[in-house]
């Protein structure tokens, strides 16, 4: 397992960025909450949030460290210092990606929403299978690096459980809330 120390040693790494694209993508047809089409300006994620409770998250961060602009390790205890750092991060209004447990995502999604960022894409994977390379790193790497065409359809965005007990891990992207033309 990749350790927190290994990741921290890698530090904040700025890699080559793919061109910014503008794409449309759709949620699963069976999604009740997210059945509408979202059009977002896609860009490379500005930070990857690594959950070192999730082995695949650490492996992904290590494997992609030259591509990811910034890697932030979620502490076991979310304290006031890290909360402040998250608020600064989310206030920057860039795309943020991560691979975490559902419980961590539950917290992060709500903290991000305070700063106007919304969960726009999520894909869950069986935790039992993650050790067998089930998470498609190549696809995630492309999508988290700005190539939204690489995104597979999202799972229903908010149907995940705010629980650590379920055997799922989640790859996800938070994005500044788009102001839709037909809104108000």
């Amino acid at each position: 397992m990749v350790t927190r120390r290994e990741i921290l040693t890698a530090g904040a790494i700025f890699g080559s960025l793919l061109p910014i694209t503008t794409v449309a993508f759709f949620d699963d047809a069976n999604s009740q909450a997210t059945s509408s089409q979202h059009t977002i300006s896609s860009a490379p994620i500005s930070a990857f949030l690594m959950d070192d409770e999730v082995e695949e998250s650490a492996r992904f961060a290590k494997a992609l460290r030259t591509k990811l602009q910034r890697i932030i390790v979620l502490p076991a205890t979310l304290d006031s210092k890290f909360y402040s750092e998250l608020n600064v991060l989310f206030s920057s209004r860039h795309l943020i990606g991560g691979i975490t447990t559902g419980a961590a995502l539950f917290c992060l999604e709500r903290i991000a929403w305070n700063r106007g960022l919304r969960l726009v894409w999520r894909r869950n994977f069986s935790r039992e299978a993650t050790g067998q390379g089930t998470i498609p790193f190549a696809m995630l790497a492309r999508s988290l690096s700005g190539d939204s065409r690489a995104l597979t359809p999202s799972n229903p965005i908010r149907s995940y459980r705010p629980s650590r007990s379920e055997q799922l891990v989640h790859a996800w992207i938070l994005s500044p809330k788009p102001v839709l033309a037909d809104q108000a």
Partner: peptide, 24 residues
């Protein structure tokens, strides 16, 4: 007097009830 979200541990106990996952 120190606030935390310790271990993101918002999950309830037990983890299942009546054959269903407990989510809150």
């Amino acid at each position: 007097g120190i606030p935390t979200l310790r271990n993101f541990d918002l999950g309830p106990v037990p983890s299942s009830y009546d054959g269903q996952d407990v989510v809150g």
